[in-house]
Design a protein around this nucleic acid. Structure first.
Lengths: 260, 260
DNA sequence: TATCGGCATTGATGCCGGTCAATCAGCGCC
DNA sequence: GGCGCTGATTGACCGGCATCAATGCCGATA
């Protein structure tokens, strides 16, 4: 590799990294970043591959560069519960613990910036400014996880589905838009990043019920189907209303437009 | 205050603090602890009082010393969801953020070790060893939150109720036992720390359904009612069966920082 | 003690949503 | 094109749970 083009010790890999400015790495100076890049390497995983298994030593940690990683908790009854989804720039793996309490699995094809957990831990302790940024990242993840918790404790499935779609419509701006589309559509696009089965598991329901709720929103002109995995938000206030259904909403739904 | 009795710079307040060894403060040396104690103070809140409101500046952070604090999320439609419960030695408040995404409210009468968020932030950045311990605490909270998400996502109400009771039976040992009771009963005691309404909201159900499930367990001789808020576990294996989880899962869950 | 208000329990009823099953749509492959 | 496979949708059924309502229980207050 020709590092001559990068002066001041700036890191070649990280300079072109799409998520550098959004990950904890941004706290590292050029010199420190170079050190960090020496213990990290990009790695591809195919959809379905297990990155870290539950109960493992969790020897790998790092950043999601592209794709979606799902956190799952396998219960002994064979049921796989999805605990969270990790998007690009999210930190994955369990630092400072001998064993991961969850599995990390590629929900789509993913690219990860991987580090040995041990090397990462010693590195981070020697660079408090990076550890500080990592703390900020983890605090954000904690907030996000609690927001998902709030979502899943909603009583009706429709609330959870609407909330899920709403949040995705917010995240889709930069990350999910098809790069080949040269104009940005005026209305928010919902790009479902994973299959119905995974979404349903994440929302604590079944693919059938999920499908029914989505189709209900389509019939009510809240969203419009582009293809199987893409929807356009036609009526954002309506979608927001569905995230917290009132009694009137339920009655108008079952009354005017009974489930057929 | 007479600090003469405490040599080597040891901190008067913290030496007698019931949760010192379990909180992030344990990483602080005597000298640093003294500094920390200068920016912290104990404060009492009555049941129902709001400690930090959602969207607030979140000017206060600190440790729960005694009592239960509930985290609530007001949804866009105005519905209030319980996102987590904080027990003694848990960290509360949102450090390093200008605004709290959740409300912190006293679920019982509580004692908090409060610090100005700003003072805490500058203190922690100047003491990386304390910030490191804080990071470990937050990572544990993240795990616990995700485990709770797994619990609530795809279980029947009975399983959630049984899991909740089981975890409480583990925590009741030291923290919740009435200090006036002079003998420890041989069988585990479940002390419900908060009212039925809050528990039901936390479990994603209603007080009525919660009550029915508890009474079912009583009728099946799994637990025995002592008074409204105290139960005795008669048949622990039976209770574990109702959770639908394996014993190992539950053991790991009721470990260091369970149940949020 | 009598009254009141908050909370827990119990009962009756309707409906949401899980389950099982069939159908449909998309895709790769020969 | 025919075929099989996977995943999404739609339908029928019914059990579990939310809802509404009534009752019981306890503590507070005068």
């Amino acid at each position: 590799m020709n590092d001559a083009a990068f002066t001041h010790g700036s890191c070649k890999k990280c300079d072109t990294c799409a998520i550098h400015q959004r990950s904890f790495c941004r706290a590292a100076s050029d010199e420190v970043l170079n050190e960090l890049s020496r213990i990290s390497h990009l790695r591809e995983y195919e959809k379905g591959q297990v990155i870290v298994a539950q109960g493992d030593d969790a020897e790998i940690v790092g950043n999601v560069v592209s794709g979606i990683v799902k956190l799952t908790n396998m219960s002994m009854s064979g049921q796989q519960n999805i605990v969270g989804l990790l998007f690009p720039s999210d930190f994955f793996g369990r630092a400072f613990s001998d064993e991961s309490r969850f599995s990390y699995e590629a929900a789509t094809d993913v690219t990860l910036c991987c580090m040995s957990r041990h090397a990462f831990e010693t590195f981070v302790v020697r660079h408090p400014e990076v550890e500080h940024e990592l703390l900020l990242t983890i605090l954000d993840e904690l907030d996000a996880t609690r927001e998902w918790t709030a979502m899943t404790s909603c009583h009706t499935t429709m609330q959870r589905v609407a909330t899920f779609l709403f949040i995705l419509s917010r995240r889709s701006d930069g990350v999910f838009c098809d790069p080949s589309s040269r104009t940005r559509l005026p209305r928010p696009i919902i790009a479902l990043p994973i299959g119905r089965r995974d979404i349903a598991a994440y929302l604590g329901t079944t693919p059938e019920t999920l499908s029914r709720n989505i189709q209900t929103l389509v019939r009510q002109n809240i969203i419009r189907s582009l293809d199987t995995n893409h929807f356009e938000v036609v009526d954002m206030p309506g979608l927001i209303d569905r995230t917290g259904e009132t009694r009137e909403d339920l009655e108008s739904m079952s009354g005017a437009e009974p489930l057929r």
